[in-house]
Write a protein that binds this DNA or RNA. Structure first.
Length: 479
RNA sequence: CUGGGUGUGGCGCAGCUGGUAGCGCGCUACCUUGGGGUGGUAGAGGCCGCAAGUUCAAGUCUUGUCACUCAGACCA
């Protein structure tokens, strides 16, 4: 990134001020704007189009795995939210509450959903009676509200868009399998669609979701060495089922509690895209979610035949790709910058000289190298170039993940890395949450991200207290 | 919640010890423009966050208040 020439002055360099760079990209790429309510953002058409592409891809994956979409109300009666003890304790501090309806004070306060476990449970109580009613594999796409103290566009907003899957199963094994399956689904999606590699694993007791027995997480690594909780999948056991009195009669005519899961990813993924792939010239989008995959820029468009040829190319490419032909009267240079800031993976330039040669110029957003290609096999060329964009940004992200993975085998080493080398730290842990607290305090914010599915044995003892180690934990700062 | 910063045309800002509200970008019109934000001419656009106070006079001083923002704490 450092050796690339910066073409757009309005974007702060990420080396100068990463937070400002992030905000600049959000604005210059026209992803979102601030609104009059703190922590609530306006997702602009270009940003929303990315979300729609994310939705379409994920939704198809969910449906392939047998899930159905539903829609639940956005209000939760306070008493309902309080039904499960851990859950209410976890969420109470950040709930928005409706106390007045029309002119009158409400008899019971209504919580604007921070998540919908309780609503799903209440419904499941009514529709699950027999083993024949299981499994229930529901998902909903909706907004939720969590009254955050510090907010940042996409990464942490008071209101955000997400999907939440809520499933009920006959057996513990089946539910646990579902929890893992959905985390795997997210992992595949991050890799294949978003071109983002990540660490996956299980949360420690301290970092688990309120009310969950087990929380699995996907943790991608941002460019500045800060991790992002990119998606979670929870196994609840029958805790909620008991709290909500959800029972079914099994094959042996016994009354049983079903086993539950939930899983979700949110618009935060757009933040992950920005901070994983972006550079000093703006956003870089993986082709699969880019609202515009090819920006077609006519050169000297007033000359006879140029626009006609551009339209012809657009028609040919549009059969297979999302193409935008910009025939506005902005200058070509302006257009170049514009689509670069917006992270359009591929630019196609067509001018009089190209037309004479029956060719055009393809420019990748990643390398910015110009290649002249024949118009005869333009579809294949574009396809190849888009695949190359995916390959390059994935490789780059993977490299970043590797570079920012550190190993600490002693307490001093841990503190040193936490201080001087932003990124993940692999280190052994005794299993005691006091050590988590201590490490967090001493480092000023490094927390356990997860216990990876594949653990290594770095040493025999906990990096913090020196007692026998139970697990290898990946630690890091998070958004 | 704690600490810092900022509120002045759409955006970014200047405005010194009070005295006729300015600049850049953007916007509109016309001209110009061949490969990285083309150049020019003309024009539109402001209760100086809000409320009190001091003063002949407040963008400027005082007090209060609200909002945004950054860094912490909190974050299922």
């Amino acid at each position: 990134m450092a050796n690339e020439k910066k073409m757009v002055e309005q974007i702060t360099s990420m080396d100068v001020d990463f937070a400002q760079w992030y905000t600049d990209v959000v604005k210059k790429a026209e992803l979102a704007d601030y609104s009059g309510v703190k922590g609530c953002m306006i997702i602009r058409p270009y940003g929303y189009a990315i979300w729609e592409n994310i939705q379409a891809d994920l939704d198809a994956r969910f449906k392939r795995l047998g899930h159905e979409n539903v829609y639940m109300p956005m209000f939760i009666p306070e008493s309902l939210l309080q039904r499960e003890k851990d859950h209410v304790e976890g969420f109470a501090p950040e709930c928005a509450v409706v106390t007045i309806g029309g002119q009158n004070k409400l008899a019971e306060r209504l919580i604007v959903r921070p998540t919908s476990e309780t609503l799903f449970c209440e419904h499941y109580k009514n529709i699950i009676h027999s083993y024949r009613d299981l499994p229930k594999l529901y998902n909903q796409w909706c907004n939720v509200v969590r009254w955050e103290k510090t907010t940042r566009p996409f990464l942490r907003t008071s209101e955000f868009l997400w999907q939440e899957g809520h499933t009920m199963h006959e057996t513990e094994a089946e539910a646990r399998e579902e929890t893992q399956r959905m985390l795997k689904c997210y992992e595949d999606f991050y890799r294949e669609t978003l071109a983002i590699p990540a660490v996956t694993g299980r949360k420690t007791e301290k970092e688990k979701f309120a009310g969950a027995l087990e929380t699995y997480t996907i943790e991608p690594m941002m460019h500045n060495g800060v991790a992002l909780q990119g998606g979670t999948s929870h196994y609840f056991g029958d805790g909620f089922a008991k709290a909500f009195d959800i029972t079914y009669t099994d094959r042996d005519n016994k009354v049983c509690y079903p086993h539950q899961t939930s899983w979700g990813v949110s618009t935060r993924m757009i933040g992950a895209l920005i901070m994983t792939h972006g550079d000093d010239n703006g956003l870089i989008l993986p082709p699969a979610v880019a609202p515009i995959q090819v920006a077609l820029i006519p050169v000297a468009q007033h000359k006879e035949g140029v626009l006609e040829k551009a339209r012809e190319i657009k028609d040919i490419l549009s059969a297979k790709f999302r193409v935008k032909l910009d025939d506005s009267d902005y200058s070509t240079g302006w257009k170049f910058s514009q689509y670069e800031m917006k992270g359009v993976p591929l630019r196609l330039e067509i001018g009089p000289r190209d037309i004479e040669n029956n060719s055009c110029v393809l420019v990748s957003r990643v390398s910015r190298e110009k290649t002249f290609v024949s118009l005869d096999n333009i579809v294949e060329e574009v396809e190849k170039a888009l695949r190359a964009v995916y390959d390059e940004i994935y490789a780059r992200a993977e490299n970043n993940l590797k570079e920012k993975m550190n190993i600490a085998t002693s307490y001093e080493e841990f503190l040193d890395i936490a201080e001087n080398r932003p990124g993940f730290i692999k280190a052994m842990w005794c299993g005691d949450s006091e050590c988590e607290d201590k490490l967090k305090d001493e480092t000023g914010g490094v927390k356990s991200r997860c216990i990876p599915f594949v653990e290594e044995k770095l040493s025999d003892v906990c990096v913090c207290c020196g007692k026998p180690a139970k697990h290898m934990v990946v630690w890091g700062r998070q958004y």
